[in-house]
Design a protein around this nucleic acid. Structure first.
Length: 687
RNA sequence: GCCCCUGUGGUGGAAUUGGUAGACGCGCCUGACUCAAAAUCAGGUAUCUUCGGAUGUGUCGGUUCGAGUCCGACCGGGGGCACCA
């Protein structure tokens, strides 16, 4: 068993063995039943990043259209008793522009033709070869095979369409058959130009002349009005779609249909590491669920991993059991669940982790969940996060909990990346085993040359990981935390580097010195008011930064405050204000440097733990300065800045601006044509 | 091919969402202390400059009194989907 991405050129990526496809009986969860719900709810999930919502929307891939039947011009053993061909289209309005019909190479009619015709068989196998993996570019080439079959156009009397088998038609989407309207679909146009088929435009953009409008190598897919289309002429695209659907439904030859790209979720795995699917197969009773009292079904522990195949199925006795319904001889299901199955509900187990009877108690989960803030990587944007959403809705439907969405807010953090290294044998090396010599890297132990690979997400398989233990032992946990938080915003990818860890360490020491050596008896009042303002502005802004996960900015504010406090202490500023500042600093640093913060807190004479105290609150009266610095521009260029009282009258501000020598100089004696005054911000003099 | 994100000093990154570009760091330079180094402290650090200024947020245009921010085209980087009818 291999995952799709482990198949390279039709062979296993590691063993090189030829891969074959086999039909397996597997278990699926009917996520498609929830497709609409899952899609609609995305619109209201404000706490989720737009990006993830778009990815899920694309993944669900809802498309509305028409499913209808063409009549073959003749009925035979290939076209079937009714002589009909099912088609799905999202553009029923373009039906009068149809110039051919195309079947998937895997369509039953294609396969039936192949039985009788060597040429068809060869064409189909050619399509399949291309389909697997070969270059993406080659896949772009559209090829077809004329079957000789024809269908009647449903509305245009006497018009017949040739039926092709074409490589670009997928069997597992829609009905595996399409009609081609080259003028309004790029793929159909490419195909028509190659096989010299008629290109008839039927939708014309507003303002174009119907006599002159033509389509050359680029299909027109935009809005417009119908023409060359009998009863649809003059209609807008959307109205024409509705009209065609209406006519097919009235005639009993088709119906409006909604399709989804989303497939049902295959949860069967033929692997050992997973929860056994609790089903028993009985010859008489069929598939019987394992009774609740016998749950959970546990894995056998004496299995062999050396034989090929599923280790559980290979176990000599594990699967033997009796049927819970009739008591006769029966066999256990040997498939195990996909691990995404369990990660879909683990968050609810946290609400009731010790419950030995059931997965979780309803009232506990209703109390704690949904999760207020979920943090994870974008790599889970569709699979895990969509499965978990589906699972929650299914659990609600079954009466296990009372809400729809598992995660109210989602934050996707970036990946931590690092260079990769390989030795001369092509084996991956840990960065710790590599050292730099001049411009080159060598193996630290052997001195052999090392090749440097690309920068990739840290992973165990590529060994480009860094063990934090060394950093923790050298600098301590607080410095390590500060360092990690201080540089990159967490939403962004981060290339790991240790340059800067020294800086964090120095800062930890500086904080210690500031708090423990400060003179809290200082008496100079000087700029105490400014100092207090700075303290409270910092509380306000740092709190906002933390709320928004802007940890790097929060660290910057911490540093700004400690810089200001250092200066204030040096000037022997008011001891009370200094104490207020240092205590605030200590409380604000606690989320980032909890150990240092507690130690300093105690040092400042407090008995209770800092962690048990409330988060500091900013005094609103101190958030705004009485005077503001206003920039003055002349013709949009900065010429001067002035200090003015907050909310000063416009006229006064204007006068102050025009009084600045630098402004006068830049005006070159001209009279201002216009003066724009943005209160408390900027003044722009236009001359 | 389609969809989304992104581009700011030597470097990581700030910029109140249209209003003083480069906060806060790292690195580097100069100085103090030292026999010396480390640590620490002080100062400097976008570019060019005739020292008046001029230029500058991937490139080219546009809107505006004013654009890193908005609009259009293009270039580079990353991610998702990939012939979905």
């Amino acid at each position: 068993m291999l995952a799709n991405e482990q198949v390279v050129d039709g062979r296993g990526w590691r063993s090189g063995a030829v891969v074959e496809r086999r039909k397996l009986t597997q278990w699926f969860l009917k996520i498609t039943e929830f497709a609409d719900e899952l899609l609609d709810a995305l619109k209201t999930m404000d706490g989720w990043p737009e990006k993830v919502r778009i990815m899920q929307e694309n993944w669900i891939g809802k498309s509305q259209g028409l499913k209808f039947r063409f009549d073959f011009t003749e009925k035979n053993e290939v076209t079937g008793e009714k002589g009909e061909l099912d088609i799905f289209t999202t553009r029923p309005d373009t039906l009068f522009g149809a110039s051919f019909v195309a079947l998937s190479p895997d369509h039953p009619i294609s396969l039936a033709l192949a039985e009788k015709d060597k040429g068809v068989e060869e064409f189909i196998s050619k399509c399949r070869q291309m389909g697997t993996s070969e270059a993406v570019l080659e896949a772009a080439e559209k090829i077809g095979f004329d079957t000789g079959l024809k269908v009647h156009h449903p509305f245009a009397k006497g018009k017949e369409l040739r039926v092709f088998i074409a490589n670009f038609v997928l069997m597992d989407y829609g009905t595996g058959a399409i009609f081609g309207c080259p003028a309004h679909d790029q793929r159909d146009l490419d195909f028509a130009r190659k096989y010299d088929l008629h290109v008839q435009p039927v939708v014309i953009p507003e303002g174009e002349n119907p006599k002159e409008f033509c389509v050359d190598m680029e299909a027109y897919t935009g809005p417009g009005r119908l023409f060359n289309s009998d009863f649809l002429n003059g209609m807008e695209v959307e109205d024409a779609k509705a009209e065609v659907i209406k006519r097919f439904e009235a005639a009993g030859k088709g119906e409006g249909t909604t399709l989804y790209r989303l497939r049902d979720w295959g949860v069967s795995r033929q692997r050992y590491w997973g929860c056994p699917i609790p089903i028993i197969h009985c010859e008489k009773c069929g598939t019987v669920p394992v009774p609740e009292k016998d749950l959970p079904v546990t894995l056998p522990e004496d299995v062999s991993f050396s034989d090929p195949g599923n280790p559980i199925a290979n176990h000599p006795t594990w699967k033997d059991t009796t049927c819970p319904a009739c008591g006769g001889k029966a066999e256990r299901e040997t498939d195990t669940f996909d691990t995404f199955f369990e990660s879909s509900w683990y968050q609810f187990r946290y609400c009731d982790p010790k419950n030995a009877q059931i997965g979780f108690a309803r009232d506990k989960v209703n109390y704690w969940a949904p999760v207020d803030q979920y943090i994870g990587g974008v790599e889970h944007a569709v699979m895990h996060l969509l499965y978990a959403r589906f699972f929650t809705r299914a659990l609600k439907k079954c009466g296990y909990l009372d809400f729809d969405e598992p995660f109210t807010a989602l934050f996707t953090q970036g990946m931590v990346t690092h260079e990769t290294f390989k030795d001369t044998d092509g084996k991956w090396l840990y960065p710790a085993d590599v050292k730099k010599e001049g411009d080159n890297f060598v193996h630290a132990a052997t001195g052999k040359p090392v090749t440097v690979g690309r920068i990739e997400k840290m992973s165990k398989s590529k060994k480009n990981t860094v063990d934090p233990v060394e950093i923790l032992e050298t600098y301590g946990a607080d410095a390590a935390r500060l360092f990690i938080l201080s540089d990159s915003p967490p939403a962004r990818d981060l290339e790991w580097t240790e340059s800067g860890i020294e800086g964090a360490w120095k800062y930890v020491n500086r904080l210690w010195r500031l708090a423990t050596l400060a003179d809290y008896e200082g008496t100079e009042t000087g700029n105490a008011e400014d100092m207090r303002r700075k303290i409270h502005v910092t509380i306000h802004e740092l709190t906002q930064d933390l709320d928004k996960f802007h940890f790097n900015k929060a660290v910057a504010r911490l540093r700004e405050l400690s810089n200001a406090l250092d200066a204030f202490a040096q000037q022997k500023g008011d001891g009370k204000v200094l104490r207020e500042g240092v205590e605030t600093l200590v409380r604000l640093m606690a989320p980032m440097m909890p150990h240092l913060a507690e130690e300093l807190w105690q040092n400042l004479g407090h008995k209770e733990m800092l962690v048990d105290t409330a988060w500091p609150k900013a005094d609103p009266a101190l958030l705004e300065n009485d005077s503001v610095t206003i920039a003055i521009q002349v013709n949009g260029k900065l010429r001067a800045t002035v200090q003015l009282p907050r909310d000063v009258a416009k006229e006064e501000a204007e006068a102050a601006a025009l009084g600045e020598p630098a402004v006068q100089k830049a005006m070159e004696g001209k009279t201002p044509r216009k003066v724009i005054v943005v209160p408390n911000r900027i003044i722009n003099v236009v001359v």
